[in-house]
C-alpha cells in the first residue's frame, strides 16, 4: 500500500512538472527539435533542471543508504554496452517523437484531454511495447518444439 501511494505521489509530481514546464504541449517540444525553424531551448532547460535536482539527490541523499545497490548507475545485466538495439531503438523513438511531439510521459498527461486521437496514440504506444515483448520472446524461444 505504501509503495502504491508513493508511486501515485511521484506520478502526480511528475505530471505537474510536465504541465508547469510546458512539456505537455507538443508544440513546445517540437520547437526544441526544429533547429532550422523557430528554435526554442525550453526542453533543454527542463531537462537540465530535472537532472540537476536528481543528480544532487543521488549524490548527496542516497549515497550512504545501505539498501541502495553498490552502483546506482548499474544498467540491467546484459545491457551494458552501447549496441545496435540502444541506438536503433532510440532512433525509432526519436522519429515518433519528432512526428507527434509526444514522448511517453506527456502522452499520458495529454490523455487528460480525453481527445480520442490521444487515446489512439497511447494505445498504439502500448501496442508497440507489446510487439517488442513478443519479438523478444519469440527470438528467445526456439520455434521448433
Amino acid at each position: 500500500m505504501r509503495a502504491l501511494l508513493s508511486a501515485l505521489l511521484a506520478g502526480l509530481i511528475f505530471g505537474v512538472g510536465l504541465c508547469i514546464s510546458g512539456m505537455s504541449d507538443p508544440e513546445k517540444v517540437l520547437a526544441f527539435l526544429d533547429f532550422s525553424g523557430n528554435w526554442s531551448p525550453r526542453l533543454m532547460g527542463v531537462m537540465l533542471s530535472a537532472i540537476l535536482v536528481h543528480a544532487a539527490w543521488l549524490r548527496w541523499l542516497v549515497r550512504d543508504d545501505e539498501s541502495a545497490p553498490t552502483s546506482i548507475g548499474a544498467p540491467p545485466a546484459g545491457r551494458r554496452r552501447i549496441d545496435a538495439a540502444l541506438l536503433g531503438g532510440s532512433a525509432l523513438f526519436g522519429a515518433g517523437w519528432g512526428l507527434a511531439g509526444y514522448c511517453p510521459g506527456p502522452s499520458v498527461v495529454a490523455l487528460g484531454t480525453f481527445a480520442p486521437s490521444m487515446i489512439v496514440f497511447v494505445l498504439a504506444a502500448l501496442a508497440g511495447m507489446a510487439l517488442h515483448r513478443g519479438l523478444v520472446r519469440s527470438s528467445q524461444t526456439p520455434t521448433s518444439k
Partner: peptide, 24 residues
Amino acid sequence: APRLPVLPLAAAGLLVGFGTRLGG
C-alpha cells in the same frame, strides 16, 4: 488536444512504444 490527424498519431505512437522498449 493533439493537433495531428489520427493516422500519423497512431504511427508515431507505435514508433514511440516499440523504439523506447528496444532502446531501453
